[in-house]
Amino acid sequence: MPSRLRILVLDDEPIVCKRLKPAFQKAGYEVETCTDSATALQRIEETAFDVVVTDLKMEGADGLQVVERTHQVLPRARIVVITGFATLDTAKESFRKGAFDFVAKPFKLGDILDCVRRIEAELREGAERGDADGGAGKDTSS
């Protein structure tokens, strides 16, 4: 894994991207943001992000499609779903499609930073162990 985690944030509400980006940067990560899922899907094909943070309900491809595609293209990437419409069903579906964590809006900055730090720690442990997928293959949906 790279020295600095690469994070992609996808949310169709600009305020979320605008606030998450400097927060992640301040924590020492490289960050890209997208406000439409088409651009995000394109960037996922082009760049090996370590973490993808995505909203669920959006125009065009919704968050679950992004989760699914990310899981296919970047199997080592961890996916964090953020949504204001959190239900047990959407959470289950997110995990089934490969999400690492599920955060309901509104959330505290510290909560999502903690989430990404956990991911970072796991990825580093996986890299040290020499896991090909950084430990991404394990079942996190339970």
Partner: peptide, 19 residues
């Protein structure tokens, strides 16, 4: 300089808390 509307041309701040 920060970019409006969450676009991606924002340079990193001068320093992070980790620094």
């Amino acid at each position: 300089e920060d970019a409006p509307d969450g676009s991606d041309d924002t340079p990193a701040p001068d320093a992070s808390a980790d620094d």
